[in-house]
């Protein structure tokens, strides 16, 4: 009996003693922030589905999140509040605000090219002039400029959000989440790149 009590106490002490404070990349918060940002850019008149029906990972992700939530609750019970609360992702710095404004304005010009399929969303979180034939010759350089400007702003955006939240090393994760959310928030019919292939939503 004594041995069992000792083991119980030892396990308890270990559980309490083995507390490590980790700063995790706040995936959910970033997704929320990305959705807010992207919906602003796309404009409120866009058809913006809440979930990407074309994403093969949608269902898996949901169950993974649910599982993580359950595990987190159990962990919380065992290891009380050992790590920092998941923060909100700051997307209201001057740089991000300036980028959002520029991208909103540019989106009005890009929209018809997304609709036609001339421009598609790459897996890198950037956009690509995927089918120049759909653009009249005299407009080719205009669309090239829009794509160059948009990609420059998107690259800055991912860097700025990471910096604004005190973790420049998150840039890659932020880019990946944005890449997914640009597609997730896009209306049906727009082209996106998945596993190296182009497909429509």
């Amino acid at each position: 009996m004594k041995i069992r009590q000792l083991i119980t106490v030892a396990v308890g002490v270990c559980l309490v003693a083995c507390v490590t404070v980790n700063v995790y990349f706040p995936e959910s918060a970033t997704e929320r922030a990305a959705d807010i940002f992207i919906k602003d850019v796309y404009g409120h008149d866009e058809q913006t589905p809440t979930e990407d029906p074309g994403s093969p990972q949608g269902a898996v992700k949901f169950s993974t999140e649910a599982l993580i939530a359950v595990v987190a609750k159990v962990s919380d019970f065992i290891l009380p509040s050992a790590y920092a609360q998941q923060p909100d992702i700051n997307i209201s710095t001057p740089a991000v605000t300036t980028l959002r404004s520029a991208m909103e304005q540019r989106h009005r010009e890009l929209k018809s090219h997304y609709d036609s399929g001339a421009v598609g969303m790459a897996a890198t979180g950037l956009i690509i002039l995927r089918d120049p034939k759909l653009v009249p010759l005299q407009d080719r350089n205009t669309i090239k400029k829009l794509v160059v400007d948009e990609n420059a702003d998107r690259n800055r955006l991912y860097t700025e959000i990471a910096k604004a939240n005190g973790h420049p090393e998150w840039q890659k994760d932020i880019r990946e989440i944005f890449a997914e959310r640009w597609v997730g928030n896009a209306p049906t019919g727009w082209w996106y790149e998945s596993a190296g292939k182009w497909q429509t939503k």
């Binding site: 710095t93 001057p94 740089a95 605000t97 300036t98 700025e160």
Partner: peptide, 8 residues
């Protein structure tokens, strides 16, 4: 530090 002419 100003970014886009606004203080950060």
């Amino acid at each position: 530090v100003l970014q886009a002419w606004r203080p950060t």
